[in-house]
Amino acid sequence: MKRLYTEELAIGYANRLVVQNLNLTIMEEKITALVGSNGSGKSTILKAIARMIKPEQGKVFLDGKSIHEQPTKQVAKQLAILPQNPVAPDGLTVAELVGYGRFPYHKGFGSLTKEDKQQVEWAIHVTGMEQFSDRPVDQLSGGQRQRAWIAMALAQETKILFLDEPTTYLDMAHQLEVLQLLQQLNREEKRTIVMVVHDLNHATRYAEHMVAIKQGAIISEGTPQTVMNKEVLREVFGIEADIIADPRTGVPLCIPHGLTASH
Score class of each variant (00 low, 15 high):
106 H>W: 09
161 L>M: 07
162 F>G: 04
25 T>L: 12
47 K>Y: 11
197 V>F: 06
107 K>R: 13
77 K>T: 14
31 I>L: 06
189 E>Q: 14
239 I>M: 11
113 T>H: 12
103 F>G: 01
26 I>W: 01
115 E>F: 03
101 G>R: 06
218 I>F: 07
125 H>A: 14
73 K>Y: 15
201 N>F: 11
131 Q>M: 07
50 A>E: 14
88 A>R: 04
17 L>E: 14
182 L>C: 14
90 D>A: 14
94 V>S: 01
29 E>Y: 12
209 H>K: 12
246 D>W: 13
209 H>S: 08
1 M>T: 01
112 L>W: 11
195 M>R: 03
71 P>T: 05
7 E>D: 13
114 K>E: 12
147 R>Q: 11
242 D>A: 09
33 A>H: 10
96 E>C: 04
234 R>G: 11
261 A>K: 15
164 D>K: 10
202 H>N: 12
240 E>V: 09
18 V>Y: 02
166 P>M: 11
38 N>T: 10
162 F>H: 09
37 S>W: 00
147 R>P: 01
108 G>N: 05
140 L>I: 13
82 L>T: 10
79 L>N: 07
61 F>I: 15
79 L>A: 02
141 S>H: 09
116 D>Y: 01
204 T>E: 00
230 K>V: 15
52 M>C: 12
134 D>E: 13
250 G>C: 01
144 Q>E: 15
137 V>D: 01
103 F>H: 15
34 L>W: 08
165 E>F: 08
156 Q>E: 04
123 A>Q: 00
4 L>S: 02
134 D>Q: 14
160 I>C: 03
193 I>A: 05
217 A>F: 00
228 M>T: 10
237 F>Y: 15
235 E>S: 02
212 A>I: 05
168 T>F: 02
22 L>S: 07
255 I>N: 11
250 G>F: 04
221 E>G: 05
163 L>E: 09
259 L>Q: 08
259 L>S: 07
114 K>N: 11
26 I>A: 02
170 L>M: 10
122 W>P: 02
219 I>A: 07
22 L>C: 02
134 D>F: 02
97 L>W: 01
164 D>S: 12
160 I>G: 08
70 Q>E: 13
124 I>L: 05
9 L>F: 05
46 L>F: 07
9 L>Y: 05
245 A>S: 15
79 L>T: 09
87 V>N: 09
